[in-house]
Simulated assay, not measured.
Amino acid sequence: MTPAPHAPTRTPLAAAGPSRPLTGRPRALLLEGVHPEAAALLHRAGFDVDDHRGALGEDALIAAIRGVQVLGIRSRTRVSRRVLHAAGDLQAVGAFCTGTDQIDLQAATERGVAVFNAPHANGRSVAELALAEVIALTRRLPERNAAAHAGVWDKSATGSHEVRGRCLGIVGYGAIGTQLSVLAEALGMDVVFHDLAERAPVGRARRCETLHELLVQADAVSLHVDGRPQNAGLIGEAQLAAMRPGSVLLNLSRGSVVDLAALRRHLTSGHLAGAAIDVFPDEPSAAGRPFTNPLRGLPNVLLTPHVGGSTQEAQREIAVSVANRLVSHARTTTTARAA
């Protein structure tokens, strides 16, 4: 299934008791290296802010969240039902990222905890990286780069193509998919897309009614779907086999979407020319931790550590957007976006 990307998440204040505007000097806990502008904005609004670079496991988070009114996280910290029901003072969670898959939204609603995210703030950054990877894979830059670093002069046009005139298939045609569509078309690519939601095509892009219809005609397939359960395993053995010989696959959406073992088989067999993967089923909890993955070591694969939206511009925009909404909620209990 291929639903639309996230809309801004605003959990209603539930029957567990409405939030009241915070008084005194409330506490905020920020995890995972949220851009410093968020802490600065919260400080200016009168919060005491604890700012940590790493994620926390469930037990550690329960201990750290005592007495905290506002929690800020990115994608690695899991805010489970157990965490939410143990957090007696918590009034709002800010997800300083696009999605909210890591938060139990039903439990947040039951507890009257508002949840805010920034679904569109890093769209340009993700789209630019996807386009760069399409070009790099189509020109076989990963292999050429590795060979040159190994002292091998591999000057050849074999397997190397321009992107102009080639077909890009975009799975998930929301905020990121449409931006990628515009950028790719500006380079002369033909664009097709598939999305279960009704989406108006941008420019000359054409809609595919089924995922299979897109896979059999695209020279590059870029995934931009969310992490809801029905998207798990969206690209598996059958879908990879349906892709055009010599095509490339990009996943900058969610780690559960692609069967990596099957992808490795199709890369090593030569059926696919390359892949670029930015998100993984199991990701280290902090920078510097060991990273294991079945695609490591393949010369035609670009592996990046979940940095699709990690530009200074995007991270600052996310920080300002989510922090402002947390401050507004703390003052007024409103969940509406400020004008």
Rank of each mutant, 00 (worst) to 15 (best):
Met1Lys: 15
Thr2His: 13
Pro5Glu: 09
His6Ala: 12
Ala7Asn: 13
Arg10Lys: 13
Leu13Met: 14
Leu13Phe: 11
Ser19Pro: 14
Leu30Ile: 03
Glu32Gly: 10
Glu32Leu: 12
Gly33Trp: 03
His35Asn: 05
Pro36Ser: 04
Glu37Arg: 09
Glu37Val: 11
Leu42Glu: 00
Val49Cys: 03
Asp50Asn: 06
Asp51Phe: 13
Gly54Gln: 12
Glu58Asp: 09
Glu58Thr: 15
Arg66Lys: 15
Gln69Ala: 11
Gln69Trp: 03
Gln69Asp: 05
Gly72Met: 02
Ile73Glu: 07
Val83Phe: 04
Gln91His: 15
Thr98Cys: 08
Thr100Ala: 13
Ala107Trp: 08
Ala107Asp: 08
Thr109Arg: 08
Arg111Phe: 01
Arg111Met: 13
Ala114Thr: 14
Ala114Gly: 09
Phe116Glu: 07
Ala118Thr: 06
His120Asp: 15
Asn122Val: 06
Val126Trp: 05
Ala127Ile: 03
Leu129Met: 03
Ala130Ile: 07
Leu131Val: 12
Ala136Glu: 01
Thr138Asp: 10
Pro142Ile: 01
His149Pro: 03
Ala150Leu: 08
Val152Ala: 10
Gly159Phe: 00
Ser160Gly: 11
Ile170Glu: 06
Gly174Ile: 09
Thr178Trp: 02
Leu180Phe: 08
Leu180Val: 11
Ser181Phe: 07
Val182Gln: 14
Leu183Ala: 11
Glu185Cys: 13
Leu187Tyr: 09
Leu187Arg: 14
Val192Gly: 10
Val192Ile: 09
Val192Asp: 07
Ala197Glu: 14
Glu198Tyr: 15
Arg204Pro: 06
Arg204Ala: 15
Cys208Met: 14
Cys208Arg: 13
Thr210Arg: 08
His212Ala: 15
Leu214Val: 09
Leu214Asn: 03
Leu215Ser: 05
Leu215Tyr: 02
Ala218Cys: 07
Asp219Ile: 04
Ala220Gln: 02
Val221Phe: 06
Val221Pro: 06
Ser222Trp: 01
Ser222Phe: 00
Ser222Thr: 07
Val225Glu: 01
Val225Pro: 01
Pro229Gly: 13
Asn231His: 02
Asn231Val: 07
Ile235Lys: 11
Ile235Gly: 05
Gln239Trp: 08
Ala242Lys: 07
Ala242Trp: 03
Pro245His: 04
Ser253Trp: 05
Ser253His: 02
Ser253Tyr: 05
Gly255Ile: 09
Val257Gly: 04
Val257Asn: 02
Val257Met: 01
Arg264Ile: 02
His266Gln: 11
His266Glu: 12
Leu267Ile: 02
Leu267Glu: 05
Thr268Lys: 00
His271Val: 05
Ala273Asn: 04
Ala276Met: 02
Ala276Lys: 06
Ala276Glu: 00
Phe280Thr: 00
Asp282Val: 15
Glu283Asn: 04
Pro284Gly: 13
Ser285Arg: 15
Arg289Asn: 12
Arg289Phe: 14
Pro294Asn: 06
Leu302Ile: 14
His306Ser: 06
Thr311Met: 03
Thr311Arg: 10
Ala314Ile: 03
Ser321Gly: 02
Val322Glu: 00
Arg325Asn: 12
Arg331Met: 04
Thr333Gln: 06
Thr333Ser: 04
Ala338Tyr: 08
Ala338Thr: 13
Ala339Arg: 09
Ala339Tyr: 04
